[in-house]
Design a binder for these strands. Structure first.
Lengths: 241, 241
DNA sequence: ACCTGAACACCGTTCAAGT
DNA sequence: ACCTGAACACCGTTCAAGT
């Protein structure tokens, strides 16, 4: 066996390479697919080497979440690997219209990221519950809150408005991503939503009158359209302040 | 050793007793405290017996979550163990003012439940991401959506409005509960928020201008007041529709 | 400093055997 | 039908030993 034929690591182990491998594993197999066994095989190393760069699996999950969020919501003075145009959500919005657009842009950036990486939904929710003031949460908060301020909202309402928007964006994006994901095996998205809608239509009319009434809307709804309708509802509330 | 001295189970094993024990374990030790070892010790039985009543740990977690939510958000025709007064969130609201109150009541019912059972926050988030149209989600959806309809909102806006409110209520309640919980060891809640606020105030002013600007609000804020401010913002938006 | 990999403690789940 | 508990496969983490 020559030196060339022997499997050899592409580069020295580093925290970035470990996090990148974790993201690939999460993308291909979900949260249950991220194990130290799979990680050591992919990186051609042992568990001890990974622990030399990362403190625990929880820290690794947080780092993987942070790296994906940072890629879609760069701060003003970062630049991506290919010098991409800065998304409008990170520019200083000039007026109310631009501010509203910036909020929608930040929402869709997270919406699309969660669609591309479905494990993000659960992971962001976990982070938000376990470490509400950590770096990942703060970055999201800033990208939505900046435009909220530019909207002309009085200062006393900044926190509540940003909270409503952030929790809605993350929660609703996760829900829509699940619609799109559960489809995979054989059922398509329409059929999946149809099944849910039929289940809703069959609920006890005395216990669940509202849910029954809305079952048809669930069947017909367009994901992105419904998603932005929620953001626009909050913007309408802000316009009254 | 007499028959009386021998430890004997209080009652036959049942799904309800297992779920109740799971909730007690979750309350006292959090999500990591719920193991089959702890469960079998508390119920004086073996793992096989538990699997005879429950399909998996995931199902048990879902059942524990459902039982707590059902206790605080009963449907119209259920009654609790002590025949409690039906919360206003489950009555048919008579007009816009009553409907708004019913939404706030449902919000505070979940807010208080999450404070009493901090593990609920992560668990509800997980359920919402994994099984968005399941029974727990549907119950919460109904308790908020019913009043939304009674508010006089046009039908096309029901889904978006209810989504915004539900995601905000669950997300914000979880965040506030973490504030209250991380306090436990030695730090109190004020000190914990103070630490977060100081960290925010120390962020790079070019990257995080908004987050820095609201750091002081974080220090002074009243949890329940901030929480209801978010609900009222959405209600203001609905009033324009 | 960085990495190896066997070993450890613990976990959810199964299943042949009992009553 | 309901329960027992040993056994299994797998997990995150540690650590003495190497380079």
């Amino acid at each position: 066996v020559t030196a060339q034929a022997r499997p050899r690591r592409a580069a020295a182990l580093s925290r970035e390479r470990i996090v990148a491998a974790a993201v690939e594993l999460l993308d291909s197999a979900g949260a249950v697919g991220l194990t130290f066994k799979a990680l050591t095989e992919r990186l051609a190393t042992g568990p001890g080497a990974i622990y030399h760069h990362v403190a625990s699996k929880d820290e690794l999950l947080a780092a993987a979440t942070g790296s994906v969020v940072a890629a879609v919501l760069p701060t003003r003075h970062e630049h991506g690997p290919a010098d991409p145009p800065v998304p409008s959500g990170t520019r200083e919005p000039a007026g109310p219209t631009e501010a509203a657009d910036a909020i929608r842009a930040a929402g869709f950036a997270l919406f699309d990221a969660i669609h591309a990486h479905p494990w993000l939904a659960g992971q962001l929710a976990t982070q938000l519950a376990a470490n509400p003031w950590g770096p990942v949460t703060t970055r999201i908060f800033e990208s939505v809150g900046g435009p909220v301020r530019a909207l002309g909202t009085p200062e006393s309402g900044w926190f509540a408005a940003t909270s409503v928007l952030v929790h809605y964006i993350l929660g609703a994006a996760g829900q829509h991503a699940t619609n799109a994901m559960t489809a995979r095996p054989g059922v398509d998205r329409v059929e999946f939503l149809d099944t849910a809608a039929t289940a809703w239509a069959g609920l006890d009319p005395r216990e669940y009158p509202f849910t029954r009434a809305i079952a048809d809307q669930l069947r017909e709804h367009d994901d992105r359209e419904q998603f932005v309708a929620g953001i626009d509802l909050v913007l309408a509330g802000l316009a009254t302040r």
